Computed example of a mutant assay.
Amino acid sequence: MAVPQNKQELLDAINTNYERLLCVIRRVPAHWVNECTLEGHAKGTQMSAANLIAYLLGWNELVLKWLEADAADKTIDFPETGFKWNQLGQLAQKFYGDYEGIAFAQLLDRLDTAKQQIVSIIQSHDNADLYERLWYERWTMGRMIQFNTASPYENARVRLRKWLKAKGL
Rank of each mutant, 00 (worst) to 15 (best):
I25L: 15
G89Q: 11
Y153A: 08
A150G: 09
A71S: 15
Y153I: 04
G58D: 02
E80L: 13
L169P: 00
K167R: 13
T149V: 03
W32V: 00
N155M: 14
R161E: 14
M47L: 09
A30R: 12
T45L: 02
Q5M: 12
W85Q: 12
Q5Y: 06
E61R: 11
R133N: 12
E68H: 08
L52A: 14
K115S: 09
I25E: 10
A128H: 13
E154M: 09
N51C: 15
D126C: 07
A114I: 01
M141P: 05
S151T: 09
I25K: 04
A72E: 13
D98M: 04
D98L: 02
K74D: 11
I76V: 14
N51T: 04
L134D: 14
V119G: 02
F147G: 08
R159T: 06
E137R: 08
A156L: 05
I76R: 11
N155W: 05
I53K: 03
M47Y: 04
A150E: 04
V28Y: 11
L10S: 00
D70G: 11
G168C: 02
T149D: 08
N127C: 03
L108M: 07
Y55R: 14
P4L: 13
A71L: 09
G58F: 02
Q116T: 05
T16W: 06
Q146V: 06
D129G: 03
Y153F: 15
V3L: 12
K7D: 01
N60Q: 14
I102P: 00
I14W: 02
